[in-house]
């Protein structure tokens, strides 16, 4: 069943940001969210994470509406669903290990200390994201890419079955972009990933959902969704699309704008 959105609408200050969007993710698969800036990708992820209350429709986890308000419900939800936001900041002087250990908060209760299993989960999360050697470094001394990976490690420490990622490849060099998306695919999670790079989306996502102005304009397998017409319509950019391999993974080459 996993996590899904059913005709979700969300407006802020009278503006409709997300407009009757339905999302269904095959359990264990990776769904890519595409769309230009301001198309509602981040807002949709926040709705799926239960951080915003839909003004219409519903977000469901295993068929149960996500309410987001009740304390007990929230904790259980956070043990299932983890979110990596685009950019986060803190005034607190934390080490990387302490940031990752925050992922154990939903498992710990208000007062308990980190248990042995908690430490093991944190160590494994650091390991998987290639951050183990930075565990004792201060968060404030990290580069943008390292911060992104530390946040991913924190999300993994929540031991989620659903993982929501908002442009996780921002700030990452190309090697780490590929590593991160390969890791997300490898993990036994259902993932929803907002991405800007269409080629990465085509290569690493099982399905794509394209948003424009808060609405779904296309959904399905990368090979069927990513067409030159769609790219022109949604992004206003001309491109040539060729199949990359025998699975038909589309490869997109952008063309300079018409003079």
């Amino acid at each position: 069943m996993s996590l899904r959105a059913q005709d979700v609408t969300w407006s802020a200050d009278g503006r409709v940001i997300v407009d009757r969007v339905s999302v269904r993710v095959e359990p264990g698969s990776t769904l890519g969210l595409l769309g230009p800036n301001g198309s509602g990708k981040s807002s949709l992820l926040r709705l799926l994470a239960g951080l915003r209350k839909p003004t219409g429709g519903a977000v469901l986890l295993d068929g149960v509406t996500v309410t987001g308000s009740a304390a007990r419900g929230r904790r259980g939800f956070a043990r299932r669903v983890a979110l990596v936001e685009q950019q986060v900041s803190t005034e607190v002087d934390l080490t990387v290990a302490e940031v990752v250990a925050l992922g154990r908060v939903p498992h710990r209760g208000g007062w308990g200390a980190l248990s042995e299993p908690d430490h093991a989960v944190v160590a494994q999360a650091l390991d998987r994201t290639g951050m183990a050697h930075l565990a004792r470094r201060r968060w404030h001394s990290l580069s943008g890419g390292e911060r992104q990976r530390a946040q991913l490690a924190r999300a993994l420490a929540q031991e989620p079955r659903e993982l929501l990622l908002d442009e996780p490849t921002n700030h990452l060099d190309i090697a780490h972009q590929l590593d991160l998306l390969a890791l997300v695919r490898r993990l036994p999670v259902t993932a929803v990933v907002a991405l800007h790079d269409l080629n990465l989306a085509a290569a690493y996502c099982d399905d794509l959902l394209v948003l424009a102005a808060g609405r779904v304009v296309a959904a399905g397998a990368p090979a069927t969704v990513l067409t030159a017409d769609l790219v022109r319509e949604v992004y206003g950019v001309r491109c040539v699309i060729t199949p990359l391999d025998d699975r038909g993974t589309p490869h997109i080459r952008f063309l300079p704008p018409d003079q």
Partner: peptide
Amino acid sequence: LARANDLDAFAFGADAAASLGVAVRP
């Protein structure tokens, strides 16, 4: 003290705390 761990969760803001399972407003 009974909410010490939940206070930790505020390090990255209210949304981050909420996504770690803290009922932020109450």
